[in-house]
Amino acid sequence: MEYYLIAFIIDLIVGDPHFLPHPIKFIGNYINLIEKVTRKIAKTSFALKIAGVFLLCSTILVSMAIVYIPLQILKYFGANYYIVGVIYFSYSILSTKCLKDEALKVKEALEVSLEAARKQVAFIVGRDTNELKKDEIIKATIETVAENTTDGIIAPLLFLFLGGPILAMAYKGVSTLDSMVGYKNDKYIDYGWASAKMDDILNFIPARIAGFVMVFASFIVNLDIRASLKILLRDNNKHASPNSAWTEAAAAGALNIQLGGTHTYSGKEIYKPTIGDEYKSVDIADILEMNRLMISTSCLFMIFSWLMHMLISYSNIIS
């Protein structure tokens, strides 16, 4: 458990420097390669679904292998090398600082020009950004940080605690798949179906944990805990995904703003219900508040998990 705490702190401080090799980049490259190969073979709707299942299963196995094999090699050289490997792979599945930094880039771009902000926010959202207004850019950034609090931090930590870096990397493989092929458009409706469904299943419990932890975290950073809980309980199902609205609702309530609504994806307007009540208009400062909320949620979950681990260890000792 202490190794995961070290990994969490490293991610919180260092983030993901571009010069370091990263397992997620390898997984992404693998997904691209297999998609190119299988699409040459699969032409019908059924064949694309089968190819998508193969992509899902093989990506999970590859994700586990890129942790398991190096750890076995490191174990051969000694316990200390193995521990370093565990910490590195545990650190590599987390994205607390990366998420914070990407949101800050949008904030800084907004302070330069609307056009710069549109280009910057396009790196973190899937919607069309060419015509987004200032408030829409801010909301898009807040929604991204809120949603990714689950699949970028809380869920990886949960799987890390349950099964170590091998299981956690398997989860990250599925999460990467969902971000690359899990779209409900003409290109991926069949091919990405299995990946999107598996991502929904794996995030079902973490999303709900993250939502409630975020409510408590809103109190720590002096936001509106009552509204956060109210909107969480009321609006947690207002999303096409069964999981995304949990943290978005908690964040919207805490910030006293309204998220969601209709957006344009690949030139098509997609209706989305609104989440939260618009007690105030969004402001650039809300991006900073969302970052504080995300970080406090992550730290609170880490502390809670550590205390649970200590309690279980103590119970085993006295029994």
Rank of each mutant, 00 (worst) to 15 (best):
N80A: 14
Y81W: 15
G85T: 02
G85K: 02
I87W: 00
I87R: 01
I87Y: 00
Y88V: 08
S90T: 01
S90R: 03
S92P: 11
I93G: 04
I93N: 04
L94D: 00
S95H: 12
K100N: 15
E102M: 07
E102S: 12
K105Q: 10
K105N: 11
K107L: 11
E108F: 13
L110S: 15
V112Q: 13
V112E: 14
S113Y: 09
S113T: 15
A116M: 12
A116D: 15
Q120P: 04
V125F: 00
G126S: 01
G126I: 02
R127A: 08
D128G: 05
D128C: 07
T129S: 10
T129M: 09
T129W: 04
T129Y: 07
N130R: 15
D135I: 15
E136I: 11
E136V: 13
E136L: 11
I137M: 05
A140H: 07
I142V: 13
I142L: 10
T144V: 05
T150A: 05
L157N: 13
L158H: 00
L162P: 02
A170F: 13
K172V: 00
G173E: 01
S175K: 05
T176E: 05
T176K: 04
L177D: 01
S179T: 05
S179I: 04
S179E: 05
Y183G: 08
Y183L: 09
D186L: 13
K187E: 11
Y188V: 05
I189Q: 12
I189N: 08
Y191V: 05
Y191R: 03
S195Q: 11
S195N: 12
